[in-house]
Design a protein around this nucleic acid. Sequence first.
RNA 1: GCGCCCGUAGCUUAGUUGGUAGAGCAGGGGACUCUUAAUCCCAAGGUCGAAGGUUCGAAUCCUUCCGGGCGCACCA
Length: 509
Amino acid sequence: MEPSVPPEDRGGGERREGRPPEWEQERLAEIDRLRSENVEPYARSFFGRTPLGKIAEDYAYLETDQKAEGSHCRIAGRVMSRREHGKACFLTLRDGWDDLQVYGNIDTLGETGFSRFKSSNVGDIIGCEGHVFRTRRGELTVFAESSIILTKSLRPLPEKWHGLQDRETRYRQRYVDLIANPEVARQLCGRGRLVAGMRRYLENQGFVEVETPVLQPLPGGALARPFITHHNALDTDLYLRIAPELYLKRLLVGGFDRVFEIGKNFRNEGISLVHNPEFTMMELYWAYVDYNAIMELVESMVPVLAEEVTGSTRIEAAGEEIELEAPWPRRTIDSLLEEHLGLSLAGMRAEPQTAKTLLRGRGIDVENRDTFAMLVDKALKHAVWPSIVQPMFVIDYPLELSPLAKSSPNDPLIVERFQAVIAGKEICNAFSELNDPVDQRRRFEDQARNRAAGDEEAHVLDEDFLRALEYGMPPAGGLGVGVDRLAMLLLGVDSIRDVILFPQLRPEQ
RNA sequence: GCGCCCGUAGCUUAGUUGGUAGAGCAGGGGACUCUUAAUCCCAAGGUCGAAGGUUCGAAUCCUUCCGGGCGCACCA
């Protein structure tokens, strides 16, 4: 029998030439055969089904070899495996991430019905109607009294025992990964609970959720390289946002006093275990408080989120048990550098060469052209972070690293900024927001000089943002949380690709 | 961007010092009315990531390219 669609007419996919592979031809022929018998292999609907998980729950009490009276039900799912026994056949169905066995035999289904039931392929989606019983071997099973094909699958599923191992295929064809490795779905549902929990928590605290532009005429709010795109009708280049920060602060000017946004940021940087070009960020701004209030918010919120995701405020990371309950200790950068390296910020600023020699002596790779800010960053990352396992607020950053943060009243070269570090990883970044338009302009101008000197990640000067500040922005604390990285920490995974459904890869072919 | 490793059937894989590819699952045919990695029998399925090179002979050695992984660098 001819396939219902000639190979050359099929678009898309990775095969455009030649005949479809043998297994696909066989299934296309099967589809033609079903249609010739007035059976539609792609059904329109299947109403009134009971989820498989519900059946497992409701009939858990059934004894071996016992039939449940009044258990008539409709179920549907993907055929995951098949065990044929001549005039009887067992299928394992899966809906979502629950499995349930179905039994069919020729006496009940009839000659044609049984033949169609047992010729289901692994991968097909079928619906059945019948009653519930438990087999002699103790497996909860639906005894099919009728059965219908709902969706015919043209492709073979990965092997049932080893599943899909190949990481490339898993990321590129996540739909197959989800079928073959259901624990992936459970993990990604954990991420979903994290985001939902965060939203609920912030709303309960009186924060209002907003959405600000992803397409921005000037990319701002972070030190990073942006993606550039083009708007045809306006004939102008636009940037995918690297942060929502400057727009959220404009809202503070406009009168919002507690706002947050959860959304995608885009940074044109390398891809790694902890970097995806698009990633999810939660940013919030809270008027009339400073970074101290933000620290309290973070140490209160994170344990709640952990509970939401894992059921506990204790997590396992870096080979240790970590307790997330507040309060978290607060340490200044200066004291941490002193403790771990015997260096002070003032000393590093005054004598960078001495600091570089010392860092090299610790095996940290520093370049002669590294700026003061880069030195501090490297020192923290390599010599300090790894020793911080339990949650800690690391506070009071050098001004050069933070063009949007407010200076400390005690030291104009220090800004009121903190990061929370857990298991050696930064999970958020926050500061008392700079609201002095004159100071902000000066900082932008410093950044512009860095930019002119070749630093592509330096901040650009945003006149409209300055204009907003000139109207007056209330004092405020702001917070940014990398949602993907927080999810990694709470779910105990090492790769950002395990918390992103469709991580960025080089395009196929 | 640099370094190391990997790529064999739809999936999971074997393949010795270079002698021209072997299996399990899935798929096809057959047997089997409570199995569950069901079992048993039969047949089919491969441009060994691609292109060059060395060789009488390459999945195997060399070069380049493509794709991926890991580490480093960059990066909040």
